[in-house]
Design a protein around this nucleic acid. Structure first.
Lengths: 195, 195
DNA sequence: CGGTCTCTTGACGGAGTTCAAAGCTAGTGG
DNA sequence: CCACTAGCTTTGAACTCCGTCAAGAGACCG
């Protein structure tokens, strides 16, 4: 049970956990299930959990003043997702997290997160590395958004995340890339023509 | 000495450090000075330090295939800067860090970073929070880049970072915002007209 | 003061948006 | 199991924001 979580942690900190240490951590997490289109977090409410995806797919987005949604992150099996600012500061979340498929997650609350880190400092390290990887990749995405055209960004994305392209609707991928669905459709059409 | 660093750490982890703990940490850092236009890290070489800015200003950028530079981060007094991916993985850096003014920094090497975290787990926590804050703000910048027009991004930026607007050349701010200097000039002209 | 770097301004062009409408697809209920 | 609907994708035409090219004005430094 929760083998994927254990693997995820051990791979991240690059060392094995004792059975006891892992069991202790796992006790601090609760399993939850969601239907398709359910919200894990809603903008405006406080985000009390960090989620590890066991099965299914979801994504986070920001809603702008005109009511348009802008995809921020996708999460499939083995990914973590949350609104970290809200989680750590208890401020209102600015992002909403919505499922794309029926979802099974392991959730850790703020209090239990604190406990986990206090019990065993390797979890401070684990979350540091997790967030560090997320930071590095978001920073890269930002600089690419500022320096590359949409077409190139799309091909880099589909090379890096073929699984996302399979399972996530095109209009959300467009949003994630910072373009409109019409534009992505044209990019794909044009690239099909070339070949 | 290094009071600003101590304040920075204590504010971040939200508790005071013992003199001994801080001294121990400080011993792991070395003070370095740079002239204006010096490079702290160069794209293609391995980044071996994380830098804490004591005095001066610098910024990181990515150079694209056409040789154009894209500003990624600015750092003034009290900020930390590095190429984290290169630092942690020992891979070649993709960013260059260049001073904008004569610079005084405290630098921590990879080995000493490891020691600091091993000696005192509050540094694992410190760097987790530091990177977490950076992550939250870069993610926000990205979604704003994808959802707001350049004019609005510029005003949000100048409201949030009036000190940057004072000390950093306009063409670099433009680059940071993902637009050309000409466009930023026109945005500023237009806003002056309105008032 | 001369040269280089930065900022401004103008005219034009192009990547991506907007608006609109028509296919297409998948999920739902009869 | 099929029909219907809602949501997704595609396509076209006009438009817009920002980029590109070019040139000149201003600022800074040796």
């Amino acid at each position: 049970m929760a083998a994927s979580l254990r693997k995820n942690i051990e791979k991240t900190i690059n060392k094995t956990l004792s059975d006891a240490a892992f069991e202790e951590f796992l006790k601090l997490m609760s399993e939850k299930s969601f239907e398709k289109k359910d919200l894990l977090i809603e903008e405006g409410s406080v985000c009390n959990y960090i989620y590890f995806i066991e099965q299914g797919a979801c994504y986070s987005y920001l809603t702008d003043q005109r009511g348009e949604k802008h995809a921020v992150q996708f999460a499939l099996e083995g990914y973590w997702i949350s609104d970290l600012y809200s989680f750590f500061s208890k401020a209102k979340a600015i992002y909403t997290i919505e499922t794309l498929e029926p979802l099974k997650v392991l959730a850790i609350s703020r209090e239990n997160f604190q406990k986990a880190c206090d019990n065993n400092s390797c979890f401070d390290r684990f979350f540091r590395i997790l967030i560090q990887n997320a930071y590095v990749s978001v920073q890269y995405r930002l600089v690419k958004t500022n320096s590359e055209e949409a077409e190139k960004r799309y091909f880099e994305f589909s090379k890096l995340h073929p699984d996302f392209v399979q399972r996530i609707p095109q209009y959300l991928i467009a949003s994630y890339l910072g373009i409109k669905p019409q534009s992505l459709s044209r990019i794909r059409k044009e690239s099909a023509r070339k070949k």
